[in-house]
Each structure stands twice: as C-alpha cells, then as structure tokens.
C-alpha cells in the first residue's frame, strides 16, 4: 500500500512525539521513524526522510521527488513514563514495516494506543506506598519505619499530583516532593512513632529517583546520541540535586525548632 508524503509526515510525527513523551530512548525514536519511512519507499536520494529528535522536540522533514520538502516540528514540553505504550508503539512500527497498511488503519492503531490506560490512580497510590515501605525495610529500617514511609509516600503521590497541575520544572518537582518527605519524617519521629527518621526518608525518596531518565541517558550515550544523553543526564542530576536540597533544608529547619 502506498501513502503520500503528507500522510507519512502525519503518522511519523504522531508516533515519534508519543514515543518521546512516554519515555523511550531518543535513538529508538529516530530509528523507528526511519524504518517506517523506509517501508513506504522513503529511503533513497530523491525520496527520503530526515528525523532529528531530542527529548524536548522532534523535527521531521520529508523530501518527495520534485515537490517542495515538507517539515513538521513538534515541541515536547512534558514527559512521563509509560513503558507499556512504548512497547505497543514498538510493535506497531514493526507491524507497519512488515504489513505496510494504509493510512486510516495506522491512524486507528495510533488512536487505540493513545487511548490505553494501564493503571488507575488508586493502584498507583498503592504502588507508591509499597515502594516506600519495602525500600525502608531494604535499607535496614524497622517495621514501624516502613509503615510511616508507606503513608508518607502516599502523601507525596497526592502532593505531586496536585503540584504537577501547574507544570513546574523537574527540579522544583523533586524539591517539593523531598521537602514533604523530609518534614513529615522528622515530624513523625518527633512524635515518637519511630526512633529515627533516616530510614523513612531513604525509603520514601526512592519514589522520586529518576530511574528511567538515567537508564535512557546511558543507552543514548551508547547509541552515540550525545545531545539527548547530555539532556537527560542534566535532568537526572537536577532531580538528584533537587532531592538533596529539599531534604537538607527541611532537616536543617526542623533541627532548629
């Protein structure tokens, strides 16, 4: 099945931007789009596609013979982690490459993937609690530490959901999360519920660790995509610094009281 340059531009920009917002590695985004275009014959000298992606934007240009080149830029303002969607988009691009379906079919598949919801808020809230509790046990906390850490993690989930509505920078997000964790932990231990607050803070903070960001950073560096690697590395360092700043200021203020 043949598709026009315009339609190809439309599907590649949709798939590419969705991959970036769901936390795929940047080299994977570029690679998938090149493969999709090649499946429809856009891989030679006169008919070709150029893709440039960084975590903050995506630029696609399509040359189709003598007609003027088509370009689309997508600015990506916020990214999350939805590895299930990355997996499904990966399958979709593999399917496109082997079956070469027509434009409406691809559109339908993309709509289907963008409408998928994996876990609801209640399950996510619970997962925050589990992460906080198990990690405080993992780092040597007592059962009461784990309980406090689980409850504090749930509070952090609520607060970050509320704060993220105004779309703060990643640094600010982690500062706020970390301030909430540290101040509540100190408060709980001052109440006498636990002996010390350090294991509670370590456990609950694991919810804020930029795991996907760091992994993507390493994989982009290996693939030779240094610009994307530097971008995500900076982001990961900023998140870690934000966590340290937030916890340090909360503990320092609490120790003065």
């Amino acid at each position: 099945m043949e598709i026009t340059a315009n339609e190809l531009l439309h599907i590649t920009s949709r798939i590419g931007s969705m991959l970036i917002t769901c936390g795929a590695e940047i080299y994977r985004v570029e690679d998938s789009l090149y493969r999709i275009a090649a499946a429809y014959g856009f891989s030679g000298e006169s008919r070709r596609i150029e893709v440039f992606a960084i975590p903050a934007s995506l630029i696609i240009t399509i040359n189709d013979g003598d007609s003027p080149p088509l370009t689309q830029t997508v600015r990506i303002s916020s990214r999350g982690t939805n590895l299930d969607r990355v997996d499904k988009l990966n399958n979709l691009s593999r399917y496109i490459c082997s079956e070469k379906p027509d434009f409406p079919t691809i559109q339908k598949h993309i709509d289907e993937i963008s409408g998928r919801k994996v876990y609801g808020d209640a399950v996510r809230l619970f997962s925050y609690a589990i992460v906080g509790a198990t990690f405080s046990l993992f780092f040597g906390g007592t059962p009461s530490d784990a309980l406090c850490s689980g409850i504090i993690s749930m509070v952090v989930f609520g607060v970050s959901k509320f704060v993220n509505k105004v779309k703060p920078s990643v640094f600010f997000q982690s500062v706020i999360g970390s301030v909430v964790i540290a101040s509540l932990s100190v408060f709980v231990s001052k109440l006498g519920l636990t002996e010390s607050f350090d294991k509670i803070i370590i456990g609950a903070s694991m919810n804020l660790v930029p795991g996907v960001t760091l992994t993507n950073c390493m994989r982009d560096f290996i693939a030779g995509d240094f610009l994307a690697g530097m971008y995500t590395l900076t982001e990961a360092i900023l998140i870690a610094a934000g966590m340290a700043v937030g916890a340090a200021s909360a503990i320092a203020l609490a120790s003065m009281i």
Binding site: V86, N90, F135, D198, V209, T215, A240, I251
Partner: peptide, 30 residues
C-alpha cells in the same frame, strides 16, 4: 519477548541505587 530493553533494565537496576550513601552525603552536608 520483543519488548524494549528499558522495561527490564530500569526495574532491575533500581535495587542497586545507593540510597544510603546519597542520604548520608546530604546529612553530612547539613
């Protein structure tokens, strides 16, 4: 299984994160 490597890599690495060291760094800073 034809899935992105990330899916298993991210999860597998998380227990290795040196949370204790980072916390102690911050505490000695304070």
């Amino acid at each position: 299984l034809h899935v992105p490597v990330n899916m298993y890599l991210v999860i597998g690495i998380i227990p290795l994160v040196p949370g204790g060291n980072l916390y102690n760094t911050m505490i000695s800073f304070v």
